[in-house]
Computed example of a mutant assay.
Amino acid sequence: MTATCRILLTGARGQVGWELRRTLASLGEVVALDSRTLNLADADAVRRTVREIAPAIIVNPAAHTAVDKAESEQDLAHAVNAIAPGILAEEAARLDALLVHYSTDYVFNGSGDRPWCEDDACDPLNVYGASKLAGERAIAASSCRHLIFRTSWVYGARGSNFLLTMRRLMRERPELKIVADQIGAPTWCRDLAEATALILSQVSACGFDQWGVYHMSNGGETSWHGFAEAIQALDEFDETCAPSRLLPIPSSDYPTPARRPLNSRLNNDRLAQVFGLRLQDWRAALALCMDER
């Protein structure tokens, strides 16, 4: 990777994008765009922007991530999560650029209790998962060099996520009912960004040819209720605030417009085998994230 390498980063104000803007800076010139400067729902704007910037690498963490809203905003979710990645892939192929894209555990139906492998059959339960899967397939159908990183339960110290929501609600309500039968790995956006930068350094330094899909999540597993308990245990409450009681409930007691998979475990062995990387355990990552705040 040379200092003159130009990297186009989308979603620069999002959780993962904000971290990537910093981790990618050592790899080249980062052209960081957000929803105000690049509307991914505008296919012509996406194509025009890539051609104007002519990057060597495109990193696309941007997405329509409002899972429940996607049920009523199917066209928008498809435009951002499926059509836009396909255009980025087509333009990457034209430029002989590398495309890095982020996807989700929601491409699976959540059956069983075995961690999902990259080659397992996809069967999304909701519009969000279906749109992300369509984006993956559009990228795979192109001839561009690409890395697709599927991750799960992303959170960070900024933006809108489970961690920040729980910290607020734990100060506002005496009791919280938290789903306890959906299992996955909370994943810190900084770990995703740092791993991405390390991988990009590797693939530029040798004749790498193992393009495709990789699972990338923090180690271990828990439920949303377990995640909430860990947040509460690490949080600091002053003497005027009694922490909420956290009550475990089944998904059936918390109906949402979009169905969620019960099993969101991801098998990260391929990432370790190819790149020698494993993200740290989710509890260690959470502690670091909360220490920062």
Score class of each variant (00 low, 15 high):
157 A>I: 04
216 M>F: 04
129 G>R: 05
133 L>P: 04
112 G>I: 10
174 P>A: 12
211 W>E: 01
212 G>K: 09
215 H>S: 06
110 G>F: 04
110 G>N: 05
221 E>I: 03
202 Q>S: 07
213 V>Y: 01
184 G>L: 06
163 L>G: 15
108 F>A: 11
216 M>D: 02
225 H>I: 01
187 T>S: 10
213 V>S: 05
176 L>N: 05
208 F>T: 05
128 Y>S: 06
223 S>H: 08
116 W>N: 10
162 F>G: 10
138 A>I: 03
141 A>Y: 05
107 V>D: 04
204 S>T: 12
206 C>A: 13
207 G>F: 02
107 V>L: 12
160 S>I: 07
111 S>P: 05
146 H>W: 04
198 L>V: 15
180 A>H: 12
210 Q>R: 15
183 I>G: 07
105 D>R: 06
153 W>Y: 15
156 G>T: 10
160 S>E: 11
202 Q>L: 11
213 V>H: 07
162 F>I: 12
187 T>K: 14
192 L>T: 08
211 W>L: 02
136 E>Y: 00
224 W>T: 15
178 I>C: 12
122 C>D: 03
185 A>Y: 11
104 T>A: 14
169 L>Q: 14
191 D>R: 12
143 S>D: 13
209 D>V: 11
103 S>E: 04
203 V>Q: 05
141 A>N: 09
199 I>P: 07
134 A>P: 04
184 G>W: 00
118 E>F: 03
135 G>V: 04
221 E>R: 13
207 G>P: 12
137 R>G: 00
157 A>M: 11
143 S>F: 08
140 A>W: 02
118 E>H: 02
106 Y>E: 14
186 P>I: 05
118 E>Q: 12
102 Y>P: 00
203 V>P: 06
173 R>H: 09
135 G>F: 11
186 P>T: 09
133 L>F: 05
145 R>D: 09
192 L>F: 00
208 F>K: 00
110 G>S: 02
137 R>S: 09
189 C>Q: 12
220 G>W: 00
